[in-house]
Amino acid sequence: MKKIIAIVFSVFSYSVGMAAILGLMAFLVNACPLFSIDTGTQFFLPWLSNALLIGLFALQHSVMARKGFKTWLTRSVPVHVERSVYVLASGITLIVIMLAWQPMGGMLWQVETPAAKVGLYALYGLGWGILFLSTFLIDHWSLFGLKQAFANLKEDGQHALVPRFVTPFLYKLVRHPMMTGVLILVWASPTMTLGHAYFALLMTLYILFGTRLEEKDLVEEFGGTYKEYQASVPKLLPTVRSKSKAVKGSGVRTAVES
């Protein structure tokens, strides 16, 4: 019965996480009637309150991703639902940000040329495409906690989920392609208001900070293998000179995954 409950919880957490991500897709282009980045009511120091919202997101992601927190958490919850707890917390945090975000007005740029508009929306879609593709390259179902819960139905299921290092496709170009996708999608907008730019800037700062923390964990876990990877592949932006030395295995963790 406990195993079934774990699966139900994991499916629920996955649903909340996906709903939050789909909501963000609409939020950033003002396509959601419930919340958007440029509409709503200002009620309390938007510069400060919006910064606190992104700070909450950064804190939740960074703290819950650390090994020490995971060890502490699994004293209270089974190890096979630890990832689902993270996914649920991430989804809820993202929904809170979208509901509580205050528009800030002001216009930095507004592209009117149809071809340029289409190009920017295409770039926005590319960012999301890179993000989602990256999750499947490193095992989407494990990343969002479903695989762990279903593997628990088997006696040796969790043993098969021990992470190993590999650099599939996009990971040969940059070390954190999910984060590259996020950077693209938060900045690619034909209408860039002050509030949108503020959101994009805060997310960019979080990504720079979060990837540093994650790489410390990866060096600790994979040692020289990851250091060699760092030396041969850029972190976020691909370069012509980058050469990746892939290591056989399955399952590589990144800043978003952990």
Rank of each mutant, 00 (worst) to 15 (best):
R83S: 11
L94T: 06
F43L: 13
A26L: 15
T239Y: 06
F150E: 01
L183C: 02
P33A: 11
A197Y: 13
R212T: 10
V11D: 02
P46A: 08
P177W: 04
V111Q: 02
L161T: 02
T191A: 10
R241F: 13
F209M: 14
K2F: 14
E214G: 13
T74E: 14
D139C: 06
A231G: 10
R66Y: 04
P238M: 08
E215H: 08
R212P: 00
G106W: 06
I37Q: 00
I7R: 04
L237N: 14
E82N: 15
P103A: 07
M203P: 00
M107W: 05
I184K: 05
A19F: 15
W109G: 07
I7S: 03
I95W: 11
W72H: 06
W101M: 05
L208F: 15
T211F: 03
V8F: 14
T135S: 12
Y171E: 05
L161I: 05
L131T: 04
V11W: 03
F57A: 06
R83T: 13
F169S: 15
G23W: 07
S189Y: 03
K227G: 03
Q42D: 11
I7G: 01
E112I: 09
L146R: 10
V8S: 13
S62W: 02
R241Y: 07
E214F: 11
G181N: 05
A58W: 12
S15L: 15
I92C: 08
I37T: 01
A51R: 01
G195W: 00
V8P: 02
E215A: 07
S134H: 02
T191S: 09
L45A: 14
E228Y: 06
A188I: 05
I184L: 12
I54W: 08
P78A: 13
G157C: 08
M178F: 07
P46R: 07
W141C: 12
G157W: 04
L94V: 10
M64H: 05
L183S: 01
F35V: 06
F9S: 08
A20K: 05
V81S: 03
M98S: 03
G40E: 06
L183I: 04
I130W: 02
T239K: 09
S244R: 05
V162I: 12
F12D: 06
A151Q: 11
N152A: 15
K154F: 15
P33T: 08
L120D: 02
T191E: 09
L48G: 07
H140P: 12
G195S: 03
A255R: 00
P78T: 12
L52Y: 12
W128G: 01
L24T: 02
R83H: 12
I97R: 03
M98F: 04
C32L: 13
S49Q: 02
F69I: 12
P78M: 10
T74Y: 05
K216E: 11
D217R: 15
G40P: 02
H196V: 06
S84Y: 04
A89T: 14
F132D: 00
W47V: 10
F132R: 01
P103S: 10
D38N: 09
L131W: 04
E215R: 07
T239V: 05
L173K: 14
R253H: 14
F44M: 08
K243S: 03
Y206L: 10
I21Y: 07
N50S: 13
R164G: 09
G119Q: 05
S232G: 09
L170H: 06
A20C: 14
E214W: 09
